[in-house]
Amino acid sequence: MPLSPEQIQRLARLARVAVSPEESSAVREQLNRVLKLIDELRAVDTTGIEPMSHPVAELIPAGQRLRDDEVTESDCHAEYQSVAPAVERGLYLVPKVIE
């Protein structure tokens, strides 16, 4: 089922990626090509097949072990915040959310 221009705008909103009106028709045309490819899956009979979310489940059926719940990291916030676009007094700055 091809995507409509309205669906493209809705997806762009959900994904938080602006798609400009100029880009919209090219994006739609290319996404519809990809959809045509993945639509092949819909006809496959998968009755009784468990979804495979991860190859690890096949490799260690018991699942991954959890590590002990203890502090392993030291405080690196100054270093990590040194690459942030806007920081003040150890806080990340974003536009005002609550009036």
């Binding site: 993945i38 899956l41 819909r42 496959v44 998968t46 097949i49 468990e50 979804p51 495979m52 979310s53």
Partner: peptide, 12 residues
């Protein structure tokens, strides 16, 4: 229809 189905096909 898409994501879960793809994971089932992945198992096949």
């Amino acid at each position: 229809a898409y994501y879960l189905q793809a994971q089932k096909v992945r198992r096949l």
